[in-house]
Structure formats: structure tokens, C-alpha cells
Amino acid sequence: MSFTVAIDGPAAAGKGTISKAVAAHFGFAHLDTGLLYRAVGARVLAGAAPVAAAQALDPVDLESDDLRTPQVAQAASEVAVIPEVRAALTAFQRGFAKRSGGAVLDGRDIGTVICPDADVKLFVTASPECRAERRFQELLGKGTAVTFDSVLADVKARDARDSGRATAPLVPADDAVMLDTSELSAEQAIAAAVKIVGTARR
């Protein structure tokens, strides 16, 4: 029996952490759909054409260690605005969502485009400054030389690009439950999400 949880939100709002924890709590499979776009972005940086890269994507590509760099994130955001790229990756995501045993998918358009009939929809958000601080600390921890101002600028630019694109813009689904993590610890945010999903499963 399938049970689909769609978790959307902007970069560094905490949706990845929440999604993994929710999946682990309920024994569901988890897919970070952003990795699909990052994997395509990485292929483009290596010289591939965006649409061809999306069409040839292999699940093994999602295991690469270099998908979390700022350069790949930028490339991912740029290829994500290409309708043909999104179309190539939609079938993969929908197939994953319907697997038996339950699935959690997190991304930008899961509740609105990929799985509009998901059993639970969450929209995880936080202020740009809060999200930039989280990403800044994450990058510093990896030894990446960045400034807070540059990270904040990147966050705001990505928000504008993701929300303003013509195809599948970043917006909450009409029936999504909003979860603002600005003032929440990771544990508090996870607990809130688990409660929402648990209530829907009863």
C-alpha cells in the first residue's frame, strides 16, 4: 500500500532533515528530488547538454560526493527552469512516490506538480536570513571559503528564480500544512512534522 508525503520549501529551510527523519520514523522510502537536479547540473558542468543529461540520468549519479557544492547548486537551479529537463525527471519521481510501503519526497514542486494527490503535503519555510545562516555554517564546516553576505545573496537570488520560473514555480500547495522553522530546533521541527504525518495516517 502506498502512502505519499510531499515536502516542499526553499533552500536551507530544513526540509531535507525533516524528510529523512519522517521517512525513518515511519519506515518510508525517501527521495531528495533536489539531488536529481543537482546530478543533472553536475553533468552540465562536465560538458553535457541539460536535456540529454536529464534523460540519461542514472540512480547511481545521485550518490556522487560532489553534488553539494555551491557551483552544482547554482547549475541545478539553472537547469531546473528548463521545461524539458523537468519533464524528463517527472516520471522518475512519480514512480518513486507510488512505491509500496510509503514514500517521502522533498523538493520544490512535489505537492503542486509531481504528487498533487499526495496523502500529506508540508511546506517547510524559514526567513531568508535564517536559511542563509544555516547554509553559511554548513559551508564553513566543510571548509568552503564564503561570506555570510554572499550566501544571503545566493539564497535570495535562488528564491527569486525558483518562485518566478514559469514552469512549476516554488509555491505552497493550496492544501499544504505550513511549517515555519525559523524559531525551531531541528528536533522541534521534526517532531511537528511527524505529528502532522501521524495524524493523517490514522
Results as ranks from 00 to 15, higher is better:
Ser2Val: 15
Phe3Lys: 10
Phe3Arg: 13
Thr4Val: 15
Asp8Glu: 12
Gly9Asn: 11
Ala11Pro: 14
Gly14Trp: 00
Lys15Met: 10
Gly16His: 01
Ile18His: 00
Ser19Met: 04
Ala21Thr: 06
Val22Ala: 04
Phe26Cys: 06
Phe26Asp: 09
Gly27Met: 07
Ala29Lys: 11
Leu31Gln: 03
Thr33Asp: 13
Leu35Trp: 07
Leu35Gln: 06
Tyr37Leu: 05
Ala39Asp: 12
Ala48Arg: 05
Ala49Cys: 07
Pro50Arg: 00
Ala52Glu: 15
Ala53Tyr: 05
Gln55His: 10
Ala56Phe: 14
Asp58Gln: 15
Leu62His: 12
Leu62Ile: 14
Leu62Val: 13
Glu63Leu: 15
Ser64Tyr: 12
Asp65Arg: 14
Leu67Gly: 00
Gln71Phe: 13
Val72Glu: 00
Gln74Glu: 15
Gln74Leu: 10
Gln74Ala: 13
Ala75Val: 06
Ala76Arg: 01
Ala76Phe: 03
Val79Cys: 07
Ile82Leu: 05
Glu84Leu: 09
Ala87His: 11
Ala88Arg: 03
Leu89His: 05
Phe92Ser: 12
Gln93Met: 09
Arg94Cys: 08
Arg94Val: 03
Ser100Val: 15
Ala103Gly: 00
Ala103Ile: 01
Arg108Ala: 01
Arg108Asp: 02
Val113Gln: 09
Cys115Tyr: 12
Cys115Ala: 14
Pro116Gly: 14
Val120Gln: 01
Val120Pro: 00
Leu122Ile: 00
Pro128Gly: 12
Pro128Ile: 09
Arg131Phe: 09
Ala132Met: 05
Glu133Cys: 05
Arg135Gln: 06
Glu138Met: 04
Gly143Asn: 09
Thr144Cys: 13
Phe148Leu: 13
Ala153Gly: 09
Val155Ala: 05
Lys156Asp: 12
Asp159Tyr: 09
Ala160Phe: 09
Ala160Pro: 04
Asp162Met: 04
Asp162Ile: 06
Ala166Phe: 03
Leu170Asn: 02
Pro172Asp: 06
Ala173Leu: 06
Asp174Pro: 02
Ala176Pro: 11
Ser182Met: 10
Glu183Leu: 10
Leu184Pro: 06
Ser185His: 11
Ser185Arg: 14
Ala193Ile: 13
Ala193Val: 12
Val197Pro: 08
Gly198Val: 14
Thr199Gln: 14
Ala200Trp: 02
Arg201Glu: 14
Arg202Met: 08
